[in-house]
Amino acid sequence: MIKINLLPHREAKRKELKTQFYSLMALAAILGAGVVILVGLVFSTQLSAQTERNAFITQENLELDKKIKEVATLRQEIDALKARQQAVEDLQADRNQPVFMMNELVRLAPEGLYLTSIKQEGQRVLMKGYAQSHAVVGIFVNELNSSQWMNRPEIIQNKAVGLGQGRDAKRVIEFDLNVGIRRPRELEAAAASAAAEGSTKKAVAPKAGAK
């Protein structure tokens, strides 16, 4: 006897496949959503950690800027204190400057020259006087330029004038000049520099008899 299946097996099979497809799609959606959520959590955790690190770095930078400002303020105070200390030392040393200056002028002034006025303004000295000739003024300037205590002489005025009346009248050179005066610490620094330069030259000089 031949059996004939009258059930719509094709439609049942198609329905079963469709049900499996929808199940797989739902499972894939669930897995995808899980992956997205997991990745989001990971990114959120990393972002939160990075935000905390950035906040820490910002705070540390603010603290560092504050310390830098404190150091700069402290350095300014130290510089101001050094400046005041140097001013006091210069004031004490400058008390002896007139004595050294007068001794230098007596030693350096050539014959045929005399000074009528000496005025110190800071570290410059203004001098006025008369000389027998322009050559005498030139000698005086050269002596001042080679002095240990004085430097950078500058002639302001140098002209021939008549001095006296009648038979006693003489033609002389009237001059105005100013010259710088060194402080003791400047002399000490110059001496130390010269000594260091001399030591360097001795160190690089070839030995006698060396080939």
Rank of each mutant, 00 (worst) to 15 (best):
M1A: 13
I2L: 11
I2Y: 03
I2R: 05
I2T: 11
K3P: 01
P8T: 06
H9Q: 08
R10P: 00
E11K: 14
A12Q: 13
K13T: 11
K15H: 07
K15Q: 12
L17F: 06
K18L: 15
T19Q: 15
Q20T: 12
S23C: 03
L24R: 10
L24E: 15
A26I: 10
L27M: 09
A29T: 14
I30F: 07
A33F: 04
G34K: 04
G40A: 01
G40N: 08
F43N: 14
S44Q: 05
Q46R: 15
Q46A: 12
A49K: 07
Q50N: 10
Q50W: 02
E52C: 02
R53L: 12
F56A: 15
F56M: 13
E60D: 11
N61F: 05
L62D: 09
E63Q: 12
L64G: 04
D65A: 15
K67I: 03
K69C: 03
E70H: 07
V71E: 11
L74G: 15
D79Y: 05
D79E: 14
R84C: 03
Q85G: 05
Q86N: 15
A87Y: 00
A87C: 01
A87D: 09
V88A: 10
V88D: 11
Q92D: 13
D94K: 08
D94G: 04
R95P: 01
R95D: 11
N96L: 12
F100K: 13
N103G: 03
L105G: 02
L105Y: 00
V106I: 07
V106T: 10
A109R: 13
A109N: 06
P110W: 10
L113V: 11
L115C: 07
T116G: 06
S117E: 13
I118K: 03
K119T: 15
G122A: 05
Q123T: 09
L126T: 04
M127D: 01
G129E: 10
G129T: 05
Q132H: 08
V137D: 09
V141F: 00
V141A: 07
N142R: 13
N142W: 01
E143H: 15
Q148R: 10
R152T: 12
P153A: 03
P153R: 04
E154R: 10
I155Q: 04
I156E: 12
Q157R: 13
A160F: 04
G162Y: 02
L163H: 09
G164D: 05
G166I: 05
G166N: 07
D168S: 11
A169P: 00
A169R: 12
K170A: 08
I173S: 06
E174K: 06
F175T: 06
D176I: 07
I181P: 03
R183T: 08
R185Y: 05
E186A: 09
L187W: 01
A189W: 02
A191C: 00
A192M: 07
A194E: 15
A195F: 00
A195G: 03
A196C: 05
A196P: 02
E197H: 03
T200K: 10
K201F: 01
K201I: 10
K202M: 08
P206G: 08
P206L: 08
K207T: 11
K207M: 06
A208N: 06
A210C: 02
A210D: 10
